[in-house]
Design a protein around this nucleic acid. Structure first.
Lengths: 330, 330
DNA sequence: TTGTAAGCGTTATCAA
DNA sequence: TTGATAACGCTTACAA
């Protein structure tokens, strides 16, 4: 975009103030003048420079979002909900994935400089950075509450207990929990907290490298060759679980007859996998939508006290956790 | 962000020009001065305002990307590659999904105003808008070449022929092609072009409402109840194919024995589905990476002649298309 | 080596 | 109803 408000003003034979007023509908403009201006705008195909507008208005009309990673369905589903609502609220969305980044701190600060508020996933931002950021509108997803910022997450502990209890009902006595190293207060540590509270010493944690199909596959392959292998694998997310199923299959173990496997999130592939994956459905899209609205409240100043919300989840029983009388219909 | 370069200058006892020079490493600064400045920057926790910098530099240091839709793995995989490379090149990424939007034109123009260049998927932008946009760095994905812009896509026609030929090898004689209404020059119309060139009157197109599991399911359910139902369903993407498999299952048809089904793209679920989906793998991530690099060349002016590139695809034979001697390993 | 001052493109206040 | 003009926060000649 090249043409400025000065050229429009000149062409219309008015001052830039009048052009601005006409376009924004702020202040009075004679209808004859308005026409001249609109004509010039039309002819020159003028669009106000976003930079100029933002500088003068003191706002970006944009939101940021920071995730660890853009691979896999979880974050992108959240993003979908976020973008949708942000758009509805008239705000652009600037994204930042920290995965593989060297200077994460700087990248986040740079992002903070081009938006009016930020949504940040869990442990993506180091604590000291969070401290620096506090003061601007901030919504954290899946993180322990921080002073001066909103917090939003899905319920984990209760649903983890429900899942564990369901598995106990199948009669299993030896469990493993598959997940990558987790940080205090994040989703996976809560999930572990819930299942281990119910299963006690019957479950042991097993680390995967990442939350991916590949690392689930690797970890499960090693684990399942053990002498006293578990009867049930509670995986920290669906992708890990899908990898575990592949590993079981390769080792000639039937799921769920020889081995039960469960996931978390209920991504698309969970439903289409065979056996279909028993999992805990998390409202990913809604997480994004809520985050966008919460952030907007903070930005517009409608609300200035931090809010902390936990969304309900749901155990989805399919066939990978053991045999049930009936299966889910499509 | 609140503190300005003036406050830093004042605190350091220098002019704003010196602060700027120090921070950007442009022009000479006495090491003693430099220290004073850096100290002040540190103490005040100063970060230059992105708006100020951009306005002065005349660039946003940001790229835009416009897709029809953020649901499903295809667009998000492309986005992943795009963001990664854009970040590497020091550019932020602003996203825009047009799905469900009322004023798409305005939204795209607004986006265009906050970035240095745009990647646009296929038919997301109306032709006249494209006309207005030409002049700024532009990369179109999966669209027929436009004057003054780059074009990037995956190969469709040849691979469609390969797929069709493979299916013929299975001995099928009645085919259907499942896809939503497609526009001239887009991926799906090319796929249809390829398969119909090989299969001729043995294949007929069947419309789905969208490219989703649900609409694939709906369309297939109707189709498969037909008297003379097809023996093979060539689906325009994997999600539609997964829906078709669900429908077949529900109708008691075994895939692939009673019905062959194929997809396109090779999304994650394709591999985990049972039967695992035969599909044409498209390098989604690479599409995003290439788009980011191409756009950067256009923005930096390294290149000023439009480039048009088609990436190779690959037929991935799994079990949904019929029986083969051996299966793919994980 | 440093400082002054002119942009960059708007919005909005204050006079006229 | 309109027009000067001062912000907004920075970069970068040009002078000193």
């Amino acid at each position: 975009m090249d043409v400025t408000i000065y050229e429009v003003a000149q062409r219309a034979g008015v001052s830039i103030a009048t052009v601005s007023r006409t376009l924004r509908g702020t202040g009075p403009v004679a209808s004859k003048t308005r026409e001249k201006v609109l004509k010039a705008v039309e002819e020159l195909n003028f669009t106000p420079s976003r930079l100029g507008v933002s500088l003068a208005e003191g706002r970006h009309a944009a939101n940021g979002i920071v995730f660890p990673n853009l691979a896999g369905p979880y974050y992108t589903e959240v993003l979908l909900g976020y973008e949708e609502v942000a758009a509805e609220l008239g705000r652009s969305v600037v994204i930042l994935s920290t995965k593989g980044r060297s200077r994460v701190r700087d990248a986040i600060k740079e992002l903070a400089g081009r938006v009016d508020g930020l949504v940040i996933f869990g442990d993506t931002a180091p604590d000291d950075l969070v401290g620096e950021l506090i003061g601007m509108p901030l919504v954290f997803i899946s993180r322990d509450p921080v002073d001066g910022a909103d917090t939003l997450r899905s319920e984990n502990i209760e649903s983890a207990r429900t899942l564990a209890t369901h598995l106990q009902g199948h009669g299993y006595t030896r469990y493993a929990f598959l997940g990558a190293p987790y940080a205090e207060g994040d989703d996976v540590s809560q999930r572990w907290e819930g299942v281990s509270a119910v299963l006690g010493s019957a479950i042991e944690p097993v680390l995967t490298a990442e939350y991916t199909v590949e690392s689930g596959y690797e970890a499960a392959r090693t684990l399942l060759r053990t002498d006293n292998r578990p009867q049930a694998l509670i995986c920290s997310d669906d992708e890990v679980a899908l990898g575990a199923i592949l590993a079981a299959e390769e080792l000639g173990l039937a799921v769920p007859d020889d081995l039960a496997v469960t996931g978390w999130d209920d991504i698309m592939a969970a439903r289409h996998a065979r056996p279909a994956l028993t999992t805990i459905r998390q409202p990913m899209r809604e997480l994004g939508e809520r985050a966008a609205r919460a952030l907007d409240e903070l930005i517009t100043g409608v609300r200035d006290t931090p809010a902390h919300l936990t969304l309900a989840t749901e155990l989805v029983i399919r066939s990978s956790c053991g045999n049930h009388p009936q299966e889910e219909s499509p």
